[in-house]
Simulated assay, not measured.
Amino acid sequence: MEEEFKWLLQEEVHAVLKQLQDILKEASQRFTLPTSSSGGAVKQENFVLSTSGTDQVKGVLTLQGDALCQADVNLKMPRNNQLLHFAFREDKQWKLQQIQDARNHVNQAIYLLMNRDVNYQFKTGSEVLKLMDAVMLQLSRARNRLTTPATLTLPEIASSGLTKMFTPALPPDILVNFYINLNKLCLTVYQLHVLQPSTTKNFKPAGGSILHNPGAMFEFGNQRYEVSHVHKVECVVPWLNDALVFFTVSLQLCQQLKDKISVFSSYWNYRPY
């Protein structure tokens, strides 16, 4: 009876591993996107930026896999209603590190699942649990890269290569930052004003944050600035939502298998770590 149970559990483990492989391959394909009909490079997708608030910022972003290959942005300056237009230079594109990292973690999870012979027999429940833990770690990291944007200081944003991407060049009182938040590609525009020496007695530089609020201060290039206005606009990227769903389903499958192994561990010579 025990041998029969072991065999049945082996079958279930391999079935779950195959199901996980299929789901994660689908997730990985979302990050590369289908190629164009000509069979060339990854296709480009255009997304219109929008916000639930004012229309101070409008624009269109062009995404090609993990690269933002064009950003065409209009900014209405609140002080004088002057309209600024800036776009990526034709020779520039901005790599979205969050998408790159998430894809790499998914591919590492796939490697862990496939790194054995199809007829491999797991010897203990502990061996399966360790595999599930390793896969879940990669999936959690992939999900976290999309759900948790990096915290940056304002000087880090100011010194980013992103500031040199645009034509015409960004004015010195404008900072921009792009990032992924869940299934959305976000653009934040910061308008600054220079702090005069007479007004810097209460100067307190802001720390790292995903989004800085008006009033945040920082020093850059021997000059002190304060954020006067913040505009955040975003666009939904459907295939990022697909990927997040695949991560959730895969993590649930891993946990269900772990729970089953733990419940029936006495049948399978389970030994704790």
Rank of each mutant, 00 (worst) to 15 (best):
R145P: 03
Y179V: 07
F166D: 09
N222H: 04
V194N: 10
Y179K: 08
N181Q: 15
N181M: 13
P168M: 07
P155N: 03
F178V: 10
N144G: 04
S160F: 01
S228V: 14
F178P: 10
Q196W: 07
C186F: 06
E219V: 10
A216P: 06
L162S: 12
T188W: 01
N202F: 09
K232S: 12
H193Y: 12
T151N: 12
D173L: 15
H229V: 04
K184I: 09
I157S: 03
K204Q: 11
L185I: 14
L146A: 00
Q223L: 06
L154Q: 02
H231Q: 13
S160W: 01
M217H: 14
L162H: 10
K184E: 15
L152H: 07
T167H: 11
M217N: 06
S198G: 14
N177T: 12
T147R: 11
N181V: 08
F220L: 08
T147I: 08
T148D: 13
L187C: 01
Q191K: 14
L154I: 00
G215Y: 05
R224D: 02
L154S: 00
A158E: 01
I180C: 13
T167F: 10
K201I: 13
L192D: 02
N222R: 05
N177D: 13
N144F: 01
P197N: 05
